[in-house]
């Protein structure tokens, strides 16, 4: 069902708050990856707030939908959304992220953080894990869905395509991969460093149902998720065209730098005033 204006406005408001949390988190510890975190905010909010069958009070429920952040370095965005959902107190974001003895590790850890369904960090593994979860639902006779978020740089990893063929061959229609196509990887623009375009054609050729959306459009994301599972019985790939460092002008202008560089105090103030929160 399409979102009404009120829902869209609510999620847009929340997206500003989540971006603020991300920036404050990486600023507080002066470590972490803001760029790719800022590009997945709307994706996470639409999933966690509106689409996934989850209960923050019961994070281990057998029947819950699963989410795997395969691009694990963008944990700040996931942590901010999980805290916003009530999986753990929001104070943890600044007090714990990347700190010794902290529950919020540099990359997601399923054994330390409530709400994390799979430990990730090493790129390329998440979609295989998602396949395993989707097989699990089938074997256990459960109807939960599995969402895996990958980066476009991550698509360089051969294992992603190993998993892509497994999901298609076994017709894992309860599995959705979301590609955060922000156009940048560690060393630079994906088109320069390692061009994987055309993305939609690649996923289609591997036997997936493919949708391509503006990854910052709450309406488009919502309608894409509403089409899962595909009537074709195929797994679904949603390619989200996004902007790395979305929402902060000086970061958007230097995307390579802000892949893994936190803002300093002055930059943080500027960023927050731009976000209007």
């Amino acid at each position: 069902m399409p979102f009404d204006q009120e829902t869209v406005a609510e999620l847009q408001n929340r997206s500003r708050q989540i971006r603020r949390d991300i920036l404050e988190m990486v600023h507080a510890i002066q470590s972490g990856h803001p760029g790719g975190s800022l590009s997945i905010v709307e994706i996470l909010l639409v999933l966690y707030r509106k689409k996934m069958r989850i209960d923050p009070q019961d994070p281990h429920s057998q029947d819950r939908d699963r989410f795997v952040l395969s691009k694990g370095h963008c944990a700040p965005a996931l942590y901010a959304v999980l805290a916003d959902m009530g999986y753990f107190p929001k104070e943890a974001l600044k007090e714990s992220f990347r700190r010794i003895n902290g529950m919020l590790q540099g990359h997601p850890d399923m054994n330390k953080t409530p709400g994390i369904d799979m430990t990730t960090g090493s790129l390329g593994i998440g979609l295989s894990v998602g396949c395993g979860m989707a097989f699990g639902a089938r074997i256990l006779g459960k109807d939960f869905r599995v969402y895996v978020l990958t980066g476009d740089g991550e698509l360089n990893e051969g294992q992603v395509w190993e998993a892509a063929k497994t999901a298609a061959h076994h017709r894992l229609d309860n599995l959705t991969v979301i590609v955060d196509a922000n156009g940048y990887q560690n060393d630079g623009p994906t088109r320069v460093e390692m061009n994987m375009e055309p993305l939609a054609e690649k996923w289609r050729a591997f036997g997936w149902d493919v949708q391509e959306v503006d990854g910052h459009s709450i309406e488009q994301l919502s309608s894409a998720f509403d089409q899962v599972p595909a009537p074709s019985g195929r797994p679904t790939a949603i390619i989200c065209r996004t902007v790395k460092c979305k929402g902060v002008s000086f970061m958007e202008e230097d995307k390579v730098k802000y892949h893994g560089t936190p803002p300093d105090g002055e930059q943080l103030s500027q960023a927050l005033s731009e976000l209007g929160c």
Partner: peptide
């Protein structure tokens, strides 16, 4: 990876 995912579901 598939084995890891299966294990997360209790199998």
């Amino acid at each position: 990876g598939v084995a890891a995912g299966l294990a997360t579901t209790g199998l």
